[in-house]
């Protein structure tokens, strides 16, 4: 398991988490290279399907990082995202993949340390959980890579 390098997809809001990632970089803070950041104009733009497809196509964990409660640039995008993440977590539990592979985090643009710590902690959590069971099953079937 030591060699397992999880693939993490992070949907980051342009107005907070993405800028916090920038801040982490400026401060020379380290966080795992496993985290692949996708910048979104608001976490309210992230649909359940984006999260599901990231997992289906091989991610081991996905998180959505949006603004602090009440600070959404578009008023309520982060609240919508929180509800969608909860919906996807339930769906993942039902299909046997496990809802704990998906999380919602909140931070402001100035929280570079929080961004780096969140990325590190989430990567470690997914490393402990092991590879995405869907990907493991697909490998058993003898296919290379996930579906298109």
């Amino acid at each position: 398991m030591e060699s397992f390098q999880p693939v993490i997809v992070a949907f980051c809001c342009h107005y907070c988490a993405y800028t916090a990632a920038d801040m982490a970089g400026s401060k020379r803070l380290h966080y795992p290279a496993n985290v692949k950041i996708i910048r979104v104009p608001c976490t309210g733009k992230v649909s359940a399907l984006h999260i599901m497809e990231a997992l289906r196509k091989g991610a081991d964990g996905v998180y959505v990082a949006g603004c602090l409660d009440g600070d959404c640039h578009f008023r309520s995008g982060n609240t919508c995202a929180t509800k969608r993440v909860a919906y996807v977590k339930k769906l993942l539990d039902e299909i046997g993949i496990g809802g704990e592979r998906v999380e919602m985090f909140a931070m402001s643009a100035g929280m570079g340390e929080v961004f780096a710590r969140t990325a590190t902690d989430f990567t470690e959590k997914i490393r402990d959980l092991g590879p995405n069971p869907a990907r493991v099953g697909l490998d058993k079937l003898g296919c290379v890579g996930a579906g298109a």
Binding site: L49, M52, R56, L91, I95, G96, A134, R135, G137
Partner: peptide, 21 residues
Amino acid sequence: RKEVALLSSALQMHFMKEAKP
């Protein structure tokens, strides 16, 4: 269309996990 895509994704992932074609 959205719900179709979401259900399709969920079913595919379930059967991938089960290693079932």
